[in-house]
Computed example of a mutant assay.
Amino acid sequence: MRQRLRLGLAALLLLAAGFGLGWVLHKPAINARLYAQNRLIAVQVHLDEAPPDYVFLAGDSQAELQPPAQRPCGLELVNGGVSGASAAVYADLVETLTFKDRPRAAMLSIGTNDLMLKNHPLDPKAAAQFEASVTRILRRLLAVTDHLVVTALPPVGRNLARYLEPGAVGAYSERLRTLCERLGCRFADPFADLRDGDSGFAKPGAMRDGLHLAAYRPALRALAPALCGAGPR
């Protein structure tokens, strides 16, 4: 068992080392699943050893890249983010996780990897598939926590206009808001200060590479009122 864990973690490090922007934009979803298989070993280990009271982060790289030393709501942070995961990929992944103890709160940030132009995100069929996948994620997380916060999609850099659909940023965020109203989670936008109006694009300097935030701690701090408050909404 220990040998398998060491091999899995080693593979995780190798995959993460090569997990650049080009990987996300050009490689097929099977690579995201390959990375996730190893990433989830570390996530499950942390879940198994977490204290009874903790905060769980779920989603794609917008969750995984949050610095682990932070203590939202004064609690330990268990990071279940998987870089490169689309909503459909993460819906499958989150169902494989076992929660020994219920997190006091959970955050979901998902959708960035669903914005790729090649997937035609504004097509009604693609948008409906996104909503169906997110619904699966929300139902799974609401089964293990009484307090779930879902974030809007962050904006994207203008340098990625060839690859991503900025118009889907607002459209998919509104779908997330509507789902939370229906299912009983809380919707929040910790990226509001980064947006260049309603364009879907980010203000200059807000993004590190057009896809990832220049700084992640401010986003988690902005979530504190929603994440640490009482009640589902």
Rank of each mutant, 00 (worst) to 15 (best):
L117I: 14
L108Q: 11
M116G: 15
V150I: 11
T112W: 04
C185W: 13
G170L: 02
D114K: 10
V89Q: 03
G210N: 12
P28F: 10
P103C: 10
L97S: 13
P218G: 02
R39T: 08
G59N: 07
A91W: 04
K100C: 12
V78Q: 00
A10H: 04
G59L: 06
G200S: 14
F130D: 05
G229M: 07
A224P: 06
N31Y: 13
S109G: 09
N119D: 15
K118G: 08
T145I: 11
R104A: 09
L141N: 09
A215L: 10
E64A: 09
L13I: 01
P51K: 05
L194I: 07
E95K: 07
G229Q: 08
E49I: 00
N38I: 01
N119C: 14
H212N: 10
D189Q: 05
G197H: 01
G74M: 08
A168N: 06
S61D: 09
V94E: 13
T178P: 00
A63K: 05
R104I: 08
A50W: 01
L211G: 02
Q129K: 07
V149S: 04
C180F: 12
E95V: 02
F99N: 14
P67H: 04
A152T: 09
P204D: 12
R6E: 15
G22R: 15
L220F: 09
G18I: 00
G20V: 05
V43Q: 00
